[in-house]
C-alpha cells in the first residue's frame, strides 16, 4: 500500500504545476507557439465575447485532451487526424448548442467563430503534441493551462480595445464625462480589425523585451 503510494505522483506535483504555469508565460500558445491566432483576434473588440470564447476553448480543449489521452493506445496512427477532428467537432457542437441556449446574444456576436474552434490550431496542436503521448490527468492540466494562456492574451487585447475604443469595460462607461467635455474622444480605430493585430504585436514586444530568451534571430 505504502509502496504504491510512493510511486504515485501527487496530483499537483511540481511537474504537473509546470504544465499549467508554462503556457501562461514562457510557452504561451499565442505569443510563443503561434497557435490559434485566427479566433483570438476576431472576438476581441469587447470583453464579454472574449471571455465567453476563452471559456468555450477551455472546455473543448480540456475535454478533448482527456478523451484523446484515454484513447491514445487504441487509435491507429494513420487515421488519428480524423479521430481527433471527430472528437473536437462533437465537443464544439455541444458548446455551440449550450451557447445558443443560454447566451444567445453573445453567440450571435461570435457567429462563425464558435464553429471555427474546430480548426483552432491550439486544439489540434495540443492533441498531437501532448495528449497522444501522456496520461489523462497531465493531459487535462495541459489543456487547462494552454486555454488559460490563450484566454489571458484574449482578455488583455479585449481590455485595451474596449477601453480605448469605446471607453467602456463590460459595457459600463469608465471614462468620466468631464474628459469628453475637455475634448477627449474614443479612438474608433481600436474597434476595427487591424488594431487587434497591432495590439498583439505590442504584447509580443513587451513580453520579449522582458524575457530575452524568446527573441528570434529574424
Amino acid at each position: 500500500m505504502s509502496e504504491e503510494k510512493k510511486e504515485r505522483e501527487p496530483l499537483f506535483s511540481p511537474k504537473n504545476l509546470k504544465l499549467i504555469k508554462d503556457p501562461l508565460s514562457i510557452n504561451n500558445p499565442i505569443t510563443v507557439q503561434v497557435l490559434g491566432i485566427c479566433s483570438a483576434l476576431a472576438v476581441t473588440a469587447k470583453l464579454k465575447p472574449a471571455i465567453v470564447m476563452a471559456i468555450s476553448v477551455m472546455v473543448v480543449l480540456a475535454v478533448s485532451n482527456v478523451v484523446i489521452s484515454l484513447l491514445r493506445n487504441g487509435i491507429p496512427p494513420r487515421i488519428r487526424i480524423i479521430v481527433q477532428l471527430v472528437v473536437i467537432a462533437t465537443m464544439v457542437i455541444l458548446v455551440d448548442q449550450v451557447l445558443k441556449a443560454f447566451v444567445y446574444d453573445v453567440s450571435k456576436q461570435l457567429s462563425v467563430f464558435v464553429g471555427l474552434i474546430i480548426t483552432n490550431c491550439i486544439i489540434m496542436g495540443r492533441l498531437e503534441a501532448f495528449a497522444m503521448g501522456n496520461k489523462p490527468w497531465p493531459a487535462f492540466l495541459d489543456g487547462i493551462g494552454n486555454a488559460l494562456g490563450y484566454g489571458i492574451i484574449l482578455i488583455i487585447v479585449a481590455f485595451f480595445r474596449e477601453f480605448l475604443g469605446s471607453g467602456t469595460i463590460f459595457d459600463v462607461h469608465v471614462i468620466p464625462q468631464g474628459f469628453y467635455d475637455f475634448g477627449y474622444e474614443n479612438n474608433g480605430l481600436m474597434i476595427l480589425p487591424p488594431m487587434a493585430l497591432i495590439t498583439v504585436g505590442v504584447i509580443i514586444w513587451v513580453q520579449r523585451y522582458r524575457n530575452r530568451d524568446l527573441i528570434e534571430d529574424h
Binding site: V34, P194, L197, I198, V200, G201, V202, W205
Partner: peptide, 17 residues
C-alpha cells in the same frame, strides 16, 4: 531585437489591414 520575427509580422499585417 524584441520585435524581430513574430512581433513585426503582426504589426505589418495590421498596417496592411
Amino acid at each position: 531585437p524584441a520585435l524581430r520575427g513574430l512581433g513585426i509580422t503582426f504589426i505589418i499585417t495590421g498596417l496592411m489591414g
